[in-house]
């Protein structure tokens, strides 16, 4: 099945609105997001997606109220510990993108390091969690790293620039799913989404389930088919 996208990314949007619709505190929305995360990981794993990226927390999210941030940190940690073994057992390699802010509690940093260490030899699927991530910051970091390595300006190509990004083996994103109908990039993996297809399902992230995920994959496949119509001679086309 070559039509399965190699790298799918999800911008998990709508937790706050989900909670507001139910007159619950925002933190309840984040808590409800856990089920969606696990469902999507399962679906991607079962569907043969090789790379799955989740946008959990952006560098801009630090501006949110202190309580919410604290709760989110606690929640990430709890979720991570709860599912560590299951992820490992499924052969999922877990990575974190970002995680550079000193405000992240050291206990969480340690668990993140432990999870990466535990699963680093797994091959079935790579799960990248963009946590405290900023697309521009990664690009700036790559530029710094190039300068530090004293690479002459004329030698800088797209390929070797990409080699200085964090986790350079990550392929380009094929499909980005942004839930809750919002249609923005929000500084997410800017370099890697250059050629990505975007879908914007209306469902809020806490309600997002495997079935929605399949719909998005189908939408992606159809777009590809139309894209193919342009290049492939019309004779092979069925309709």
């Amino acid at each position: 099945m070559s039509s399965v996208p190699c790298h799918v990314a999800c911008v998990m949007d709508g937790n706050g609105r989900w909670a507001a619709q139910r007159s619950l505190p925002r933190s309840a929305g984040h808590q409800a997001a856990e089920a969606a995360v696990i469902d999507v990981i399962e679906a991607a794993h079962a569907g043969g997606v090789q790379w799955l990226s989740l946008y959990a927390f952006s560098t801009e999210n630090w501006r949110r109220p202190c309580d919410e941030v604290d709760h989110l940190m606690w929640l990430v940690r709890r979720t991570l510990r709860k599912h560590a073994l299951a992820l490992h057992a499924r052969g999922i390699r877990c990575r974190f993108l970002g995680v550079g802010d000193p405000r992240i509690p050291p206990t969480l940093t340690r668990d993140i390091t432990d999870l990466m260490e535990l699963t680093r030899d797994n091959k079935r699927m790579t799960l990248t969690v963009a946590f405290d991530h900023g697309g521009r910051r990664d690009i700036v970091e790559a530029a710094r790293s190039l300068i530090r390595d004293r690479v002459p300006a004329e030698d800088v190509t797209e390929a070797n620039f990409a080699g200085h990004l964090p986790h350079p083996d990550t392929p380009d994103v094929d499909l980005v799913i942004r839930t809750s109908g919002e249609q923005r990039i929000s500084n997410f993996m800017l370099w890697q989404v250059a050629y990505a297809e975007w879908v914007f399902p209306e469902v809020l992230w806490p309600d997002f389930r495997a079935a929605h995920f399949w719909e998005c994959l189908t939408a992606y496949r159809q777009r590809r088919r139309r894209f193919g119509d342009v290049t492939v001679p019309a004779t092979t086309d069925e309709g």
Binding site: R78, A84, L85, H88, D111, D114, L115, E117, R120
Partner: peptide, 17 residues
């Protein structure tokens, strides 16, 4: 890896947040 697994699986007093 074993140590990482162990740390992730054992209860943690700081879990209270």
């Amino acid at each position: 890896q074993a140590a990482a697994l162990f740390r992730l699986l054992t209860p943690d007093p700081e879990d209270a947040g």
